[in-house]
């Protein structure tokens, strides 16, 4: 402490107390976040496998492997295809729902609960329900499609459709949460801005949206966009339960590959490297949020 020479005994006692008070939290953060990350960094530099205690340091070999690994390329591709379908829908659908529900007087709370319900359910269990609904032969959804006189769709068994189906399930589980975020953002917009807009002549729904709602929703929209992006990139549980990466690796997404490498193929070192790259990706989003949101979207 630079000020130790000038600090009074009281100040020094308070400083000591401060360290004691933050100690429990510091310990927990170290145990839960910092130490595991450090261990993953260490593991990513080795050829450690789950089946053998023997390992040696291989430097950046695991990272070099990614550049040439077809599985990695495939997983990256699948993740981005999924994100491209899922992200805009998760954003736009929940925003439209939020605005529609916000303007309702009756049934507002009932609708809010209904849309939020999927968020409270256990996705692992619900994924099984969706697998049953989307089944190519006995699934209810194909029953409806057949009743309409259309050919059945193999939602989970077709390489072209499986990512779409996963996006659909993820959408179902996310829009309620995003909608509640948007609703909170909408509620925070002062009502008299709309009144001022009405007097200024901006009473067309499009004007109301573009002149008031959308700009005022900036911080919320940014937050939803970032969290939804992270949700998209960490898609795992539905894949693990419903498709197991199939058919023919068509739904093998980033985190599922990291899981396969680590716990199915026992390549812990490579898996750790994959996880770290994923962590960096998430970090980039977090930084974007911190920088852009703080600088541009606040007034």
């Amino acid at each position: 402490m630079a000020t130790a020479t000038t600090a009074s005994p009281l100040q020094r006692a308070q400083a000591r107390l401060a360290y004691w008070l933050v100690a429990p939290a510091t310990l927990l953060i170290l145990l839960i976040y910092i130490v595991p990350i450090a261990m993953v960094i260490a593991a990513s530099l080795t050829d450690y496998t789950l089946v053998s205690d023997y390992f040696e340091f291989v430097g950046l070999d695991n990272y070099r492997r990614m550049a040439t690994d077809d599985q990695f390329g495939n997983a990256l591709h699948n993740t981005f295809v999924f994100a491209v379908m899922f992200l805009p829908a998760a954003f736009v659908v929940s925003l439209v729902l939020a605005i529609a529900i916000q303007e309702r007087k009756q049934f507002r709370s009932i609708l809010e609960v209904l849309y939020f319900l999927p968020v409270t359910s256990t996705l692992a269990a619900m994924a099984l329900v969706w697998a049953a609904l989307l089944d190519s032969r006995q699934g209810v959804i194909n029953g409806v499609i057949a009743a309409l006189g259309l050919p059945p769709l193999n939602f989970l068994g077709s390489q072209d459709l499986v990512l779409f189906s996963l996006a659909l399930i993820s959408l179902w589980s996310t829009i309620g949460f995003n909608m509640v975020l948007f609703l909170a953002g909408l509620t925070a917009i002062p009502k008299n801005l709309y009144e001022a807009a009405a007097i200024d002549g901006a009473d067309h729904p499009l004007d109301r949206f573009f002149k008031v709602t959308w700009p005022m929703l900036g911080p919320t929209a940014m937050f939803v966009a970032i969290t939804t992006s992270i949700t998209a990139f960490k898609l795992f549980d539905v894949v693990a339960i419903v498709t197991r990466g199939g058919p023919d690796k068509a739904s093998e997404v980033y985190l599922y590959l990291a899981f396969l490498e680590g716990f199915e193929y026992f390549n812990m070192g490579y898996s750790a490297a994959l996880s770290l790259v994923f962590l960096l990706l998430i970090l980039v989003f977090a930084i974007i949020q911190a920088v852009v949101v703080d600088r541009r979207v606040h007034y």
């Binding site: 008299n192 009144e195 007097i199 002549g201 005022m216």
Partner: peptide, 21 residues
């Protein structure tokens, strides 16, 4: 008539300026 067709102007108590403009 809608407010914009009444040819009135209004100053609100907390001004209701658009904060993003």
């Amino acid at each position: 008539a809608a407010p914009k067709h009444r040819n009135i102007a209004m100053v609100f108590q907390d001004y209701a300026l658009y904060p993003h403009m």
